[in-house]
Design a protein around this nucleic acid. Sequence first.
DNA 1: CATTATTACTTGTATATACAAGTGCAAAGA
DNA 2: TCTTTGCACTTGTATATACAAGTAATAATG
Lengths: 237, 237
Amino acid sequence: MALKEAPQYRKLYEKLRSLIEDGTYKRGDLLPSENELCAAHHLTRPTVRNALDMLVNDGFIIRHQGKGSIVQGQPKGIGILSLSGTTSAIGQDNLTTRIIVKPNIRSWEQAFGYEITEKQKSMGCIYLERLRLINEIPVFYDITMIPNLNLPRLTSRTFEDRSLFEILRKHYQIQVKGGEQKILAITADQRIQEHFNVKKNHPILRVDRKMETNRAGFSFFSQIYCNTRDYSLIGRF
Amino acid sequence: MALKEAPQYRKLYEKLRSLIEDGTYKRGDLLPSENELCAAHHLTRPTVRNALDMLVNDGFIIRHQGKGSIVQGQPKGIGILSLSGTTSAIGQDNLTTRIIVKPNIRSWEQAFGYEITEKQKSMGCIYLERLRLINEIPVFYDITMIPNLNLPRLTSRTFEDRSLFEILRKHYQIQVKGGEQKILAITADQRIQEHFNVKKNHPILRVDRKMETNRAGFSFFSQIYCNTRDYSLIGRF
DNA sequence: CATTATTACTTGTATATACAAGTGCAAAGA
DNA sequence: TCTTTGCACTTGTATATACAAGTAATAATG
């Protein structure tokens, strides 16, 4: 089952997105005009606009009639912490990831309070746990569960360098379109105390989320513990 | 300054959106096909697709190649702050509001960590504190600061029955378009302990938010304390 | 010098068209 | 009867074109 090549507008979207994310285009900059992009990539305006529409949608740019496409910066984030997200909010340099539980396939009955279908139950899930550190300080601990459906070699990919969202988007054409989340404040239990190196009664933010994608019926789940003493979650809405 | 007429695709979007919101099209229904919509509204496919794209974007529908546009239901909300407890949805009946500090005008230098302009500083702000109870249980404590700009009689309006957002929208044509928020877990301080009737070291969720509106340069701010023991924050994104 | 009009750009809207690709059903064939 | 083929439908992608409308800098005008 060969992967279909991505459409032109999608490829342009990825290119421009990368250029914004890596800082080639900074906040406040103007993107090349639509006509310039047409010429540069040998596309027509509707196709180019399609790509730009996606960027607008994600919050990377805004457009002004008569002026151009103005780079906004990082996406409005999906929900609260833009997942690709912790990366974008903090700056990639300082963020390191430790895989605590390597991706493995296991059975599941539900996911952090969210229901899953019978089919998903029968297929099992890819499970992993990660600890993320900012400037050597452990800040996030997240547990991820992904239905084990048609994702060849996902378990073997590295989750350290790239974000899960990026992997899904680029390699499997799966885009997170939205989702649902529950947020609450708890006190650190034994395990979290150890990972975060905090004492009892330390307040911790917990986020349970269901991520819905463009692939019908394909959702995945994560539970995120966050020590907000030094870094708080920031998001746009 | 007459309002420019809305473009065709926008009008079609509003029509279809209304039909979904009023239940004419229910969840799971198929919308008329693109060609049918073209014929019915005397438009071409790109224009119709533009309208449908907006609906997809808002989460009202999803589209399936070869099948059609499937109605999903209600849109994704703005921000977080819809509540979920053990009981699924909390009817408004159970929510009561107590004004702890009545709206009054005072000076300010900043707002919960967000910068404000010199002009806003000089004008002062409208300040209020409220406690919100669900089924007699105190769940939210929020502090609100609104720039004191051209909002005659705002201080005297009741904040108990109506939401601030509704007042701003209906009486001042101010709509919240988006904003920024910071979320963290803290332990209850003396005052919060009393309001929430919890003991020391009880974990509390704190949200600092900046609300941006359709009026250029007009933002307002709130800080929300939330006891998530019985009710957690849920939200779609 | 200050104001207004022109001009050359930008994005916004809309039409017309073509073919690719996924879905589901019905007709043809084994 | 069951399977396969084909067809008619759906949405997806892409091109080509045209004009409207906002923006900003320049040129013309008072």
